[in-house]
Design a protein around this nucleic acid. Structure first.
Lengths: 247, 247
DNA sequence: CGCAGATTTGAATGCAATCAACACTGGTGG
DNA sequence: CCACCAGTGTTGATTGCATTCAAATCTGCG
């Protein structure tokens, strides 16, 4: 599980991540394979990037579950997004000098650092690769907007359901979720920070979802008996998740 | 006020909007000036774009106050962002076929439509212009993240203060706000939809802010007596708003 | 086993929503 | 010019979803 370390090499992961965003010509793939990758294992609950940093490398996720997050005056924390294999959460730093959030792991994992300089050079030589990266940041923003809607206007029950739908579909697309359920390797506290709720309330909401038979949980594994009910409960419309214009 | 129709021509607006994001070489400027712009006046409370549309043009705002917004199952609406002169709110559609939000005016205004085909061609010929546009979408996402934090984790009082800070700084940078205050041409209902609150609660929160002497309102004009207090009240750090890496 | 972190439960509190009037405003048409 | 009206802003009372605080269980793990 967790897309366990099949013997994919890092560049394969990169290519797969790019293909998830759009089609990749052989030349572009070749260009991407030239990129230098510095592999680094990351412990659990470790920040790779801190608010205010001015990174010189991007961070490709090879393994593990990561979040972008930010804290506010009152001490509360907001998780901005979840990231997993193939994502480059700090891609924007290629064009924006300073990050205004932190990037951290929840589980142990591995990342590959790509120097900005190399990436810029490659993109210059392979403009369509650049478009792909641009599109990746746009999809990221798309997910962000969906979160904003959820957090701004949906009650807890729908919020949780919506998050389940989204993360499940993403993991499914990556081949790291079962057909009818998935393992969400995060605590209820972290779910709370993602959804703008308290951990206690997350707990009660999950109980409600279980009681309603919408989900069946065994530890961090959550099974869905009825996708229709879940997606309706979450007011979920997957169109925003993928770039292919079918919807 | 409202950057009243000085006799700027639409291309000047476009150039100014681009310069706000980064520096523009003479060649790039020349390229941008070649873009065909179809001007269109927009009435108040009119949608330019509807959720699910597959636009073939981008929409440059010349005048007026616009929002991206989306409605949820319960009937509530979430405003995703505010846009004003120089913005291209639907720029992402250049790469993503379908929009998953609506784009509408609050005030009367004017927009210039730019055909995707022409823009793509221009970007191809002037890659640095492409980077500028990319960066524009990244700044947009940056603001989105700030909203997510606010809505997810800040109480109403801070949320309103934070929004005031952000929009004020943006309008100030565009030269359409006074030194010590600005006119926010939106109703309390719309502010509520932006902040994930009810109109009634917005009303009470504004009263609180006035009572505390943080703002002084005359209709839609809001004056600030003490920027420090306002930005502290809103837990506001402007770094995310601009791309220049001074912070 | 024993500990730390995570989940669960209960009780009390509170922020914000909702419901319902009422006042104010600007614009329209008689 | 004034009456009227719809939309907006304001106020009060009530409800409720979610938070906080606190303590008890459970779980994985050294």
């Amino acid at each position: 599980m967790q897309g366990s370390s099949t013997s994919w090499n890092p560049h394969d992961r990169l290519i797969a991540g790019l293909r998830a965003v759009g089609s990749l010509s052989p030349e572009d793939e070749a260009a991407a394979r030239q990129l230098p990758l510095r592999i680094q294992p990351i412990g659990p609950h470790t920040d790779v990037l801190r608010e205010g940093d001015r990174p010189t490398e991007c961070c490709l996720i090879l393994d593990g579950f990561f979040v972008r997050h930010k804290s506010v005056a009152g001490g509360h924390r907001q998780i901005l997004s979840f990231h997993m294999l193939g994502d480059i959460p700090d891609l924007e730093c290629l064009l924006l000098p300073t990050v205004h959030y932190s990037l951290g792991s929840l589980t142990p994992g591995r990342v590959a650092f790509i120097p900005h300089a190399a990436l810029r050079q490659t993109v210059l030589a392979a403009p369509e690769l650049g478009d792909l990266l641009w599109r990746a940041t746009l999809l990221d923003a798309s997910i962000l907007r969906a979160w904003l809607v959820s957090i701004g206007r949906r009650p807890a029950y729908q919020r949780v359901a919506h998050l389940f739908c989204e993360v499940f579909m993403r993991m499914r697309a990556l081949g790291i979720a079962e057909e009818t359920g998935f393992t969400l390797p995060i605590t209820q506290m972290e779910m709370a920070d993602a959804l703008g709720l308290s951990a206690v309330h997350i707990n009660r909401t999950l109980q409600q979802l279980r009681q309603d038979g919408v989900i069946v949980s065994h530890g961090k594994y959550h099974g869905f008996t009825d996708w229709d009910r879940l997606s309706k409960a979450g007011d979920f419309d997957p169109g925003y998740l993928f770039s292919r214009g079918d919807a």
